[in-house]
Design a protein around this nucleic acid. Structure first.
Lengths: 203, 203
DNA sequence: GCCCAGCGAGAACGGACGTTTTCTCCAATG
DNA sequence: CATTGGAGAAAACGTCCGTTCTCGCTGGGC
């Protein structure tokens, strides 16, 4: 057996699975459609992934790695500081504009396989990694309360992902970016004692 | 046929469908489970709703009405003004804390039935109504740019719904409330010329 | 040159599921 | 009282789908 060819077959299967699962949902796509799209035999799918659930899990794990790497690269390409906050939403805007954009695969899975603990756990892990990335971005932005900013960026990112998906509105990225800019500006205002007299309410 | 009894059977079916569909997803629940939970005959389901798709649609339309009425009532119970902004997130916090909370039924449907135009249209209509409600809340809050505030509230609400669901973190409502408070505070600061010298960037 | 492991093609199996049908009961109507 | 029609119980039907099996081909290694 050649590992190159073996890899090729696995990749073709994962590519086909990702295209179909992401576009139509995992339950709406049968294994027949996947093997047909990949141009492989049904037996090969089971030899490589054991079951449809195994294929779904491999699809999610690969997408998790790829998506987070993509976002991290977009962030790292920006200058350190608040520019990296904007880089997050600029990247989202490009993602939303893709013709095959269909929301976050992990949010979709969490809704579709609500009764599956493994699916929910994979989705949770993915969101924890995203939250950690946004916490890093917030910590490097120079604001005084970067923990709070990280939490708020998470809300804006998730909100933009959902809005772009359900309402089919890719401009949600720009609105989220604008909201993030407002939060940065607020931090700048309240951290400069010369600009205000009172303090912020605690809620 | 007695309209009272007829209504009773329809309601029992819709109640059972909502409980199961919302908890496990529409595709993971068979009609057998619904009729068994409702204590009715299979034939009755088809006499009232025509098909499983018809039952799903009726479930979504009833939930759309009920959920929006619930949120609107929570908003109207608060004093006019910025308090109604906070009332939105306080209501969300109570929703998230329910043991049966499983995210937004319409976001879930949009992810699960990605290939179904009717499902996506129902989800879109629901979100448009929510957006209109939040636009009203923003318009009554007394800020200078209530259109922008409405858009940002929408992002925060959606982000909180997703975070509470996927990360199983009901405190997302309080963080979203805090973010909304920050946006209100920022408006207060920049709309008072005595408090600052420069102007906000346009992004 | 043989061998065999991997792969493609496709049939087959078993179970689940949406839908229809049959039969019976019951309550309201005339 | 006879009739009518909605509703419950359960079986039946056809289809789809995940999984396995069979067969034939191919290409690299002892």
């Amino acid at each position: 057996m050649s590992p190159t060819l073996d890899n090729d077959v696995s990749q073709r299967l994962l590519d086909a699975a990702e295209r179909l699962f992401y576009e139509r949902g995992v339950q709406a796509v049968g294994v027949d459609a996947v093997v047909s799209e990949a141009g492989v035999a049904t037996k090969t799918l089971y030899a490589h992934f054991g079951s449809k659930d195994g294929l779904i899990e491999a699809y999610l794990r690969r997408r998790d790695r790829r998506w987070l790497t993509w976002l991290r690269d977009a962030v790292d390409a920006a200058a350190p500081g608040p520019a990296r906050v904007f880089a997050v939403f600029d990247a989202l805007g490009q993602w939303f504009a893709r013709p095959d954009y269909n929301g976050c695969a992990f949010i979709n899975i969490a809704g579709e396989l609500a009764a599956s603990p493994t699916a929910r756990s994979i989705a949770r892990d993915h969101k924890a990694a995203l939250r950690a990335l946004l916490a890093d971005v917030a910590a490097g932005s120079g604001v005084t309360d970067h923990t709070t900013l990280g939490d708020r960026l998470m809300l804006l990112v998730e909100g933009a992902i959902i809005t772009a998906h359900v309402e089919h509105d890719s401009a949600a990225a720009q609105r989220a970016r604008s909201a993030a800019a407002a939060l940065l500006e607020l931090d700048r205002l309240v951290s400069n004692p010369a600009l205000h007299s009172g303090t912020l309410p605690a809620n």
